[in-house]
């Protein structure tokens, strides 16, 4: 068992044990806090596929996070008002169906965005993904049918067969299990032939092309998978807050997702989990001390970027063996 495996297991146990204990001590607030950590971590796990494995600095993943959220919001609204969707299909409040819709929508949107953005590289890629996310943001804000600037309330949290999702703990467990599945997917992708090609595309795309694997296709598939995982997290986030907000689509969200990964450690399996824990705790602790917590978050972030490149996992488990 390496130090990293040990650190990962510790983080996973901690994230499970604290809310269960809090729930039995009658402190539902901490369960909600842990749910927030799990959901944000899942979103960042998605981004970590593109960013950590593929080296694709997407500054527009809020688009997928928000689309997932709106998928949950729109379906719940239609079901609540008993309005059929397109072609008279009845809407639903069943979470698994909503997740599926969120994942499919994000995949379908990510393919054209990725196809245009991946023609470019470096700074262009950063700015273009940002611009596409802004495009979707402005569309959501200016389209009044689903709330426009006010966002979309989910009056009753969507349902999961056999569980009472209105209770904090069952909903946390759903999010936690999905986070673990996301982490397993990340690990599976990383260790698969596909993941090897993706990481090779990051390290040297020309060589990859020379051995007969087109980097563009590999990257596009990775970008789409990454978007789908982040979209799933978005659906959970909307259900957590019972609100699909345009701020989920805003570029601050994209920035925060990158921050989560870097705080935790880029390309590390549990980097997003560590990052999300640190971020939410900072938000909570600093937010309790001062109204100006973002100022200090900025200073901390600056310090991490300038002086502590391995992130939290790097601190716990030593530097990554491969670059």
């Amino acid at each position: 068992m390496t130090r990293e495996t040990f650190a990962n297991a510790l983080l996973a146990l901690l994230l499970l044990a604290v809310p269960i204990a809090a729930s039995y001590m009658g402190e539902p607030f901490y369960v909600t806090l842990a749910t927030r950590i799990a959901v944000l971590a899942l979103a960042a796990v998605g981004l970590n596929i593109a960013l950590g494995l593929g080296g694709l600095v997407s500054f527009g993943h809020a688009a997928f996070f928000g689309l997932g959220g709106y998928a949950a919001g729109v379906l719940a609204t239609h079901a609540f008002n008993a309005e059929p969707l397109l072609f008279g299909i009845a809407s639903t409040t069943s979470m698994p169906v909503i997740w599926l819709v969120a994942i499919v929508v994000c995949g379908l949107v990510a393919l054209p965005i990725g196809a245009v953005s991946l023609r470019t590289a470096g700074v262009y890629f950063i700015m273009i993904t940002l611009a596409f996310a802004q495009m979707i943001y402005y569309f959501a804000v200016s389209w009044p049918a689903y709330g426009g600037e006010d966002g979309l309330s989910i009056y009753v949290r969507n349902t999961f067969p056999g569980l009472n999702t209105a209770q904090p703990l069952p909903f946390f467990l759903i999010c936690y299990v999905l986070l673990l599945l996301g982490l397993l997917l990340f690990r599976f992708l990383r260790d698969s032939r596909f993941g090897a090609a993706l990481q090779a595309a990051r390290q040297n795309a020309t060589r990859l092309a020379a051995v007969g694997i087109p980097p563009f296709k590999i990257r596009l598939v990775a970008f789409a998978i990454s978007a789908m995982v982040t979209g799933l997290a978005g659906a959970l986030f909307a259900d957590l807050n019972r609100f699909a907000s345009p701020s989920m689509l805003s570029w601050h969200m994209s920035g925060e997702l990158i921050v989560l990964i870097v705080l935790g450690g880029i390309g590390r399996q549990f980097g997003p989990v560590a990052g999300a824990m640190l971020f939410v705790l900072l938000e909570y602790v600093l937010g309790g001390i001062t109204e100006r917590w973002q100022f200090f978050l900025g200073l901390i972030l600056l310090g991490v970027v300038l002086f502590a490149r391995g992130g939290l996992i790097g601190l716990l488990a030593g530097r990554a063996r491969h670059g």
Binding site: F295, G298, L301
Partner: peptide, 16 residues
């Protein structure tokens, strides 16, 4: 570029 994005994102938080 990733470090540049993050550091200047942090600067935005500090400035705002």
């Amino acid at each position: 570029h990733l470090d540049q994005v993050l550091a200047t994102f942090a600067l935005i938080l500090i400035f705002s």
